[in-house]
Design a binder for these strands. Structure first.
Length: 533
RNA sequence: GGGCCUGUAGCUCAGUCAGGUAGAGCGUCGGACUUUUAAUCCGAUGGUCGCGGGUUCGAACCCCGUCGGGCCCGCCA
C-alpha cells in the first residue's frame, strides 16, 4: 500500500472530520524542500478523501514569527525590524530595502512577499489548501483560550519542556512572548502575570503590559504548535525530521496539547531534500532551487512523482540534470503501464505486489488534478529533448510527432515542451543529452571501423556531395550508402555518428545533418577517410 | 551526552512492522527491426542483503553488539 494510503487508514481509525495540516515560516525564499512539506500533506489528504473520509487540507502560514536577522538579501535598514513579526513589516523591494509605501498602502508584508509566489507555484502543482495566517489568527483571538491555559499552567509547561527535551529553560522564561511598544518580540522579559495582563520590560528597560486576549505577541514555538492543533482541530500533520527528533517539538507538543484538552495529531516525519552534490538546501548561501525555478524546468506532475514515489523517511537528492530525465521517463513508462491489470496476476509474489501497488499509488497521486487521468505526455523526456534541440519551431516538433490540426498536442505536452526549452537553455541541462557535433574524431574510435565501414563512409561522402541538402535526400543517402554494397543501413548510421558525434548511436540523424553546413560535413567525412587509409 | 534515519545488483531503491527459494526499475551486454525518435520489442547479465554473534527447522527481516554514512535535540521543511 502506498505510504499516503497507510496514513489514510490510520486516520480512518481515528474517525471524524480530518484536518490535515502543513506549515511554513515565510522568512525567506521558498525552495523545493518546502514542497515536500506541502505535497506530503496534500497527498495524505487525497488518499484520505479516496478512503472516503471527510477531509480538509490546510496550510498554516507562520507569519507571526519574528524576523531573526538581516539576511544577505536584505538591506541594512532591516536591522530595525529584527524581532518584529514578518507579517507586520514591509516587504523588501528590488534592492532589498523595505518598501514602506506598498506596506502602508496595500498592507503588503514581508511574509506576503515570499508567500505569494509560493502559492502560485502550489496552484500550478495542483495544491489548493485553505490558508490559515497565524498572525491574523492571534489578532482575531483564535489563540486566546490556549494562551490563557498556557499562562495559567506556566509551571506545568516548563516541566514538560524541560523533562521531554532535556534542556533547561531560563528562569525568566514564560509561555507568552508579548510585543513591546515598538512591535518587537526581541529582548522582552516577562515580569509578571495577572490575567489578562502579562507584565514585561523591553530591551530598553521600559515596562509595559500585554493583554493576552488581544493576541499582541506570540506563543513560543513549542507551545504555538500544539495550540494550533487544538484550536484548528488538526488530526494529521507531516513535518520535517527536525521537529520529529526525540525530545523535539512534536514530543513536547504532544503533552502540551493535552493541557489544551486535545489529542495530538497523527504525525508523519519526512526527510529533507538536498541538492545532489551540494548538500542541504539553504536560502542564505544561495544553494537552492526555488519552487518557481523548479517549475520552470520540471513539469508539475514530475515534481509530484518525485515526492509521491519516495517514502517520506527517505532523503531525496534532487538534481535537475540526468536524474530529472530518468525520473520523467520513469513517470512516462509507469503511466503507460496498466498496473491494475498486472496486479490481477495471481502468481505474483507478495513483494512484487507491494511494489506494484506502491507504484500505482505514486502515479495516482502525481496527477495535478485529483483523480484525473494521468498527466502522461506519451512522449519520453529523452525524445522531447532531442526534438527541442533539433527543431526551433514548435510546429516542427508537433509534425515530427505526427501531430497537427487534426491531432493536436495535449496541454500537458505543450507545457512539457515549453519547460524543455527552458531547461535546455539552463545550466542544469546535462551535457550527456546535449547534441554536440565534434571537430576531431578520436583515433581509437576510427580504429574500430571495419573495411566495410570504410566503404560505406566513402559511398556516403560521395553521395552527400552530390545530394540536395534536405532531410529526405540526406536520409536516402545514408541508407543507400550501405545498400549499394548490400549492407544494413545500420552500418551507415554507426559510421556517420562516429564521424560527426563520436558516438555509435544517436538521435535521428538526417535532420541534424540538414542543419549543418554541407562543406563542413563533407570535409569532416573526408578527414575520417584519410585517417582510415 | 541523548535520540532519529540509513547501509540490499554498477546506479536508484522495494522487501524489514505480520521470519518461509533475494526483487523491481534504470544501466550494461546480446538479439530483432532492409530509413534510427539515444526509439521500440525480446532475451541475458548481475547481490557473502555493512560486519560479528544470538534466537529459530528456517533470518535481509527478530534480539544483542559493532562499523560506516546522513541528521536532530538552537523554529532552517
Amino acid at each position: 500500500m502506498h505510504w499516503a494510503d497507510v496514513v489514510a487508514v490510520n486516520l480512518s481509525r481515528r474517525g471524524g472530520k480530518q484536518i490535515i495540516s502543513t506549515g511554513i515560516t515565510p522568512s525567506g525564499e521558498f525552495h523545493i524542500g518546502h514542497l515536500r512539506e506541502i505535497l506530503t500533506g496534500e497527498m495524505i489528504s487525497r488518499a484520505a478523501i479516496d478512503a472516503g473520509l471527510d477531509v480538509e487540507f490546510i496550510f498554516i502560514v507562520d507569519d507571526a514569527d519574528p524576523l531573526r536577522r538581516v539576511y544577505p538579501f536584505l538591506a541594512d535598514e532591516y536591522h530595525e525590524f529584527i524581532g518584529h513579526q514578518i507579517g507586520n513589516i514591509p516587504a523588501p523591494d528590488d534592492t532589498g530595502k523595505p518598501d514602506y509605501e506598498r506596506f502602508t498602502n496595500d498592507g503588503f508584508s514581508y511574509a506576503d512577499y515570499f508567500l505569494n509566489p509560493f502559492l502560485d507555484a502550489l496552484r500550478a502543482i495542483g495544491v489548493n489548501p485553505r490558508i490559515v495566517k497565524n498572525l491574523a489568527a492571534y489578532r482575531s483571538g483564535k489563540f486566546t483560550e490556549c494562551i490563557k491555559t498556557a499562562c495559567d499552567n506556566a509551571d506545568k509547561i516548563r516541566e514538560i519542556i524541560e523533562r521531554v527535551s532535556g534542556r533547561e529553560l531560563p528562569s525568566d522564561w514564560f509561555p507568552w512572548s508579548p510585543l513591546d511598544a515598538n512591535g518587537s518580540l526581541e529582548g522582552v522579559t516577562v515580569t509578571g502575570y495577572e490575567y489578562p495582563l502579562v507584565h514585561f520590560t523591553d530591551s530598553a528597560g521600559n515596562s509595559g503590559s500585554s493583554d493576552i486576549t488581544l493576541g499582541l505577541g506570540k506563543l513560543p514555538w513549542r507551545i504555538d504548535w500544539p495550540a494550533k492543533w487544538a484550536w484548528i482541530g488538526v488530526t494529521c500533520e507531516a513535518f520535517g525530521k527536525d521537529h520529529g527528533a526525540s525530545g523535539g517539538s512534536y514530543d513536547t507538543g504532544k503533552e502540551i496539547c493535552q493541557l489544551f484538552g486535545y489529542d495530538a495529531p497523527q504525525p508523519l516525519v519526512y526527510e529533507w531534500i538536498s541538492l545532489k552534490g551540494k548538500g542541504a538546501m539553504s536560502s542564505s548561501t544561495g544553494n537552492t532551487i526555488g519552487p518557481m525555478e523548479a517549475l520552470d524546468l520540471v513539469p508539475p506532475e514530475i515534481l509530484r512523482f518525485l515526492i509521491a514515489g519516495s517514502k517520506p523517511n527517505k532523503a531525496i537528492e534532487f538534481d535537475a540534470g540526468m536524474s530529472l530525465v530518468n525520473l520523467a521517463d520513469d513517470y512516462e513508462r509507469s503511466c503507460a503501464r496498466n498496473i491494475a491489470a498486472e496486479l490481477d496476476d495471481e502468481t505474483l509474489s507478495r513483494r512484487r505486489k507491494v511494489q506494484l501497488e506502491d507504484l500505482m499509488g505514486a502515479v495516482r497521486l502525481s496527477s495535478v488534478g485529483h483523480n484525473s487521468h494521468t498527466d502522461s505526455s506519451n512522449v519520453s523526456f529523452r525524445h522531447l529533448a532531442l526534438l527541442a534541440q533539433t527543431k526551433t519551431d514548435d510546429i516542427q516538433v508537433w509534425q515530427s510527432l505526427s501531430m497537427g490540426e487534426n491531432n493536436p498536442p495535449s496541454s500537458v505536452l505543450i507545457d512539457r515542451l515549453k519547460k524543455m526549452r527552458t531547461w535546455i537553455n539552463s545550466p542544469h541541462f546535462p551535457d550527456e543529452m546535449r547534441i554536440k557535433i565534434i571537430d576531431e574524431v578520436p583515433s581509437e574510435l576510427l580504429g574500430e571501423l571495419s573495411d566495410d565501414d570504410g566503404l560505406v563512409l566513402a559511398n556516403l561522402t560521395r553521395m552527400l556531395n552530390d545530394c540536395k541538402w534536405d532531410v529526405d535526400a540526406i536520409a536516402t543517402c545514408i541508407v543507400e550508402s550501405a545498400k549499394t554494397i548490400e549492407k544494413s543501413p545500420r552500418i551507415a548510421y554507426t559510421v556517420a555518428y562516429t564521424c560527426l558525434m563520436g558516438t555509435k548511436k544517436g538521435p535521428k540523424l538526417a535532420p541534424i545533418i540538414a542543419e549543418l553546413d554541407k562543406p563542413k560535413v563533407i570535409r569532416q567525412f573526408e578527414k575520417c577517410l584519410e585517417c582510415l587509409n
